[in-house]
Amino acid sequence: MKPVKFDYYAPASVDEALDTLAELGYDGKVLAGGQSLIAAMNFRMARPAALVDLNNVPELSYINPTPEGGLAIGTMTRVYQVEHDPEVAKRFPLLPEVAKFIAHSQIRRRGTFGGAIAHADPAGQLPSIAVTMDANLLIRGKGKERWVKAADLIIGPFMTTIEPDEMLAEVVLSANPPRTGSNYQQVSRQSGGYAQAAVASIVTLDENNLCKAVRLVLMSVGEVPILSQKASQILVGHVPTADAFKAVAEAAATSEIDPATDLHATAKYRRNLIRVLVARSLAEAFGRAKRGG
C-alpha cells in the first residue's frame, strides 16, 4: 500500500526543526531513519499529517567522547555507524554485539540510533539496550531542553514522554566501571526477525569477585523493556554462581514478565526462553567482567 497524503518539511538545522515542530503541534511527526515509520505509513497504520524530516540536519549525526569517558551520540547517527565505530566497540562492546540482531544491514544503514529509541517498539532492541545502559537522553524543544533516563522515557508500547513539540536530540552513555562485562542473547525465527524474547545484561564485579552491580533487561516479553529487580536482589553482594543465575532466571520468568501470545511465539514459549536466556546471558557477562570486560 501507499501512505496517505501528508505535508513535508525538511529543516536544515535543529533550531529550524524545533520551530517547525512547535508550529505544527500535534500534526507534526519527526522523521528520522524512517525504517519503522515509513513501513507503518505504507500500511496506513501511521497517518501523520506532517513529517519533519531530520535527514538534512548534519549537526544531529556524531559520536563524541564525553569528558567522563563515555560517549555522546547524536540522534541521527545511523545504526550502521554505531555498529562499526571503533570507539563504540572499545567502550561499549554491547552495542556492536546487539546491532547484528537489528533487522538487516540495508535497514541499519538508514535507521538511526535515536530514532529507534524514540520509536519505543517493545520488540525493538535499542529501546531495551538504552534502558540496560541507563542512557541519559537529551530532549529538546523550542527554547527548552531536559534530560531524561531511558527507563523514564518509555511509558508504553510506542509511547514515550516526548511531547509533540519536542525531539530526542542526543543519547549519552556513561563509561562502564572497571571489571564490567555485558552480553546480549536473542532468539528469533530468522536472522533479522523479531525477537521472540531477548535478554541484555551489564554486570560489574568488585575486587573480591562479588557482584557489585547488575542491570538485566528482559525484552519482547512485556509492553516496555523490563529492568529486572530480582537480579539485583539476588546477585548484588554475592558470589555470582550458576545456581544464583538459575534463581534469577526462575524469578524473572515467573514474576517479572508479562509475555503475550502472538504469531511470533506463545506466552509459554517466551517464558521458557527468558528462563534459558537469563542464565546464559548472566554467565557470559560475568565471565567477561572477570576477564576485564
Partner: peptide, 15 residues
C-alpha cells in the same frame, strides 16, 4: 543510495 544498499520502499523520493 550514495553507494550504500538501502530499501527504496522505506525512503520517500523527496528525500
Amino acid at each position: 543510495f550514495d553507494g550504500e544498499a538501502v530499501r527504496s520502499c522505506l525512503i520517500f523520493s523527496v528525500q
